[in-house]
Design a protein around this nucleic acid. Sequence first.
RNA 1: GGUCUCGUGGCCGAGUGGCUAGGCAGAGCUCUGCAAAAGCUCGUACAGCGGUUCGAAUCCGCUCGAGACCUCCA
Length: 500
Amino acid sequence: MQAKKHPIFITNSLTGKKELFKPLVDDYVGMYVCGPTVYSDVHLGNVRTFLTFDVISRYFRYLGYKVRYVRNITDVGHLENDADEGEDKIAKKARLQQLEPMEIVQKYTVGFHEVLNQFNILSPSIEPTASGHIVEQINLTKTLLEKGFAYEVNGSVYFDVKKYNGLHDYGILSKRNIEDLMDSGRALDSQDEKREKIDFALWKKASPSHIMRWPSLWGDGFPGWHLECTAMSTKYLGETFDIHGGGMDLKFPHHECEIAQATALTGKPPVNYWIHSNMLTVDGQKMSKSLGNSFLPHELFTGTHKLLDKGYSPMTVRFFMLQSNYSSTLDFSNEALQAAEKGFKRISSALAVIKKLKYETASSLNHELDSDLNRLSSDCLTNMSDDFNTAKTLAVLFEMSSRINDFKSGIKRVSEVTRDTFENFKASYVGFMEEVLGLTDEVENNNKLLVGTINVLIALRKRAREDKNFPLSDKIRDDLKALGVQLMDGKDGEMNYSID
RNA sequence: GGUCUCGUGGCCGAGUGGCUAGGCAGAGCUCUGCAAAAGCUCGUACAGCGGUUCGAAUCCGCUCGAGACCUCCA
């Protein structure tokens, strides 16, 4: 294992600065990421966020940290529209489809996991549900009432933002000031129970028809959205933890409210480093369910989306997303995916090559090559440690793949470098590709039978070529090509292939 | 209206005071039974206008353009 204590720098959205990462406890990282509300299919914008934090947690582990990664499932309490008239998203969907709310939750949770699996996004250490932490949320609400940061009206409990702001800074994350927030937007509704419209619900009274309900000190009700994350993050990671992540669009109000609740409860900031991933755009516009421009994963794999010419594999998309920085918007287009497909094919075939490549006893040492390979290996670490710069890391991997191809074609020999240099180079390439970036060889992993069959055909074709039976060898190649398998002849009869 | 972010070559995208990003596409060459792949070489760039500086794509100001958040969204 690398386990080198390479210093990591993180752009902290709380301060807006790139900061040296210092964990609360040496060698341990606690990270919380806001998961999905399971009321509909996840689209690729959602995937980008979970991919970002997948790579971040993978990298910490690669460096030898023990990571506790908590990513919740919001299965209750996420309201539509304003917190007062709003209807629970899951309950609404259940009513429309005439299903039990937990049926909806089950269906989309399973779908969510399937999608993440396809993209090789690893499971978090803990995946708690909001509905499984009602007791904790009631207790937090109670404490906030006792501390005077909340008030009860008609069986609902609201957080008193003005009161909080007198002691702490509401808006510290989203850089807003409370006066602007109070002035802007809709006027206070006469029906509104809240003292100020910026106040938010900790606990909501359930109307008689509301299905998802739990008994509490304030009558039957359900928890507010913001509270669940505070309840679950502090339960599993402590009152203050290292990293909190999520999509940019959750910064306000969700994360701002989390900070307010937690700070009101404990008197200290809950999170040391906030990381926000940026949006996936289509024609420059945010991909979102409400705009109706989302791409669903299966539309992408099959190419059935109207903006696509053809389907793209999950690994191509994973690679595509990692070519940009998580903090920049990324535009999704057919052309960009096409370029990504070819690029990915290149570094992934180099991966197959280096895996098979063995060290030979050193001959004459090529100092220039030796130090070049060492530089490339360490550049991977440097770039990933610089705010998880996957784009730069991939650029290094492309450079490395050129060297690998040199070895393959015999332009350079592995014996020109020391054994340590070679093994380190190999471990870096394989490690960064597979462990850190999660870019695995799709073909080999997905279809051993196919791979075996292709190898049989390759052997037959080799025989034909040796016999100078070119019509037969070309037929094998052409027929395979028609099926999407491209054969590539190498030096001394060696053969590679790629599958579309 | 308020708050904030961004504008890089044909396309996608890093970088952010002096040092080739990278990928895709394009041109030429090498290798090869042919093809493909690979290798080598090449071109085009930092929205505009001012300012700071020995030096700016990078810092500051303005202009233009795009987007996000302020209501649910990853």
